[in-house]
Simulated assay, not measured.
Amino acid sequence: MPLVYVALGSNQGDPVAQLRAACQAMNELTGSQLLACSSLYRSAPMGPQDQPSYVNAVVALQTSLEPEALLDQLQRIEQEHGRVRKAERWGPRTLDLDILLYDKQVINSPRLQIPHYHMHARAFVLYPLAEIAPQLQMPDGVQLVSLLENCPRGDLQALPFFIQQPDARSDLTPHG
């Protein structure tokens, strides 16, 4: 089954609870299994700064769903958690789920771009991704470690909670 990396973000409601619930929902998708979850990170919002900081994470998911079918399911999960799509790019949201990588595929369709556009410049994506897949190689052959070298950590802050490995079945536990 394909290995997929999904970025999670939230800055509305209870972001930690939103990410925990999203992980559980992804693990329950037909033909899918959550394999690994990063720690949680706090970052300043992209775009308008008059909104709360984001809580972010990245998960590894094995799935039999095709890329656009997975996108449909992730958007369904977002909607179930109160996500309202607005014209405003980078505005506040209860839940944001983005497919970063889908195996070694490169996809450029009207609905989906994989690897996720601009992931190479987003510390809130690269650092959690490196935590669960430090040896990862992008579809174009670039090593994740090379992307990290060119992406300063900035204000990215690890939180005192992390999402445990799925087999632990206690999705969120204090760190330390």
Rank of each mutant, 00 (worst) to 15 (best):
P92A: 15
I107S: 07
G141P: 07
H116R: 14
L100H: 04
P115H: 00
A36E: 12
A158Y: 04
T63A: 03
N108D: 14
Q135N: 13
A36Y: 13
E68R: 11
Q164W: 06
D50M: 06
H116I: 09
Q62S: 11
P128L: 00
A158N: 07
K104D: 14
A60M: 09
I77C: 08
V59L: 05
V145E: 10
V142Y: 00
V84W: 04
H118D: 15
R85A: 08
C151T: 15
P134W: 01
D98E: 09
A123D: 12
P152K: 03
C37Y: 06
A133R: 01
E88R: 14
L35G: 11
P92F: 02
Q75N: 14
S39V: 09
R83P: 09
A130N: 12
G91T: 10
L148G: 06
E66V: 01
P160H: 07
P128V: 02
A123P: 13
L97K: 03
D72H: 13
R89E: 07
R122P: 11
Q135M: 00
D96F: 08
E78I: 09
S146W: 00
Y102H: 04
D155G: 14
P152M: 01
V59A: 10
Q157D: 12
R111W: 10
Y117T: 13
Q73G: 07
P48V: 05
Q157T: 15
P45W: 07
D155T: 14
C37M: 13
K104I: 00
Q75R: 12
L129Q: 11
D167H: 14
P92V: 05
Q75K: 12
M138C: 02
A69L: 08
V55Q: 03
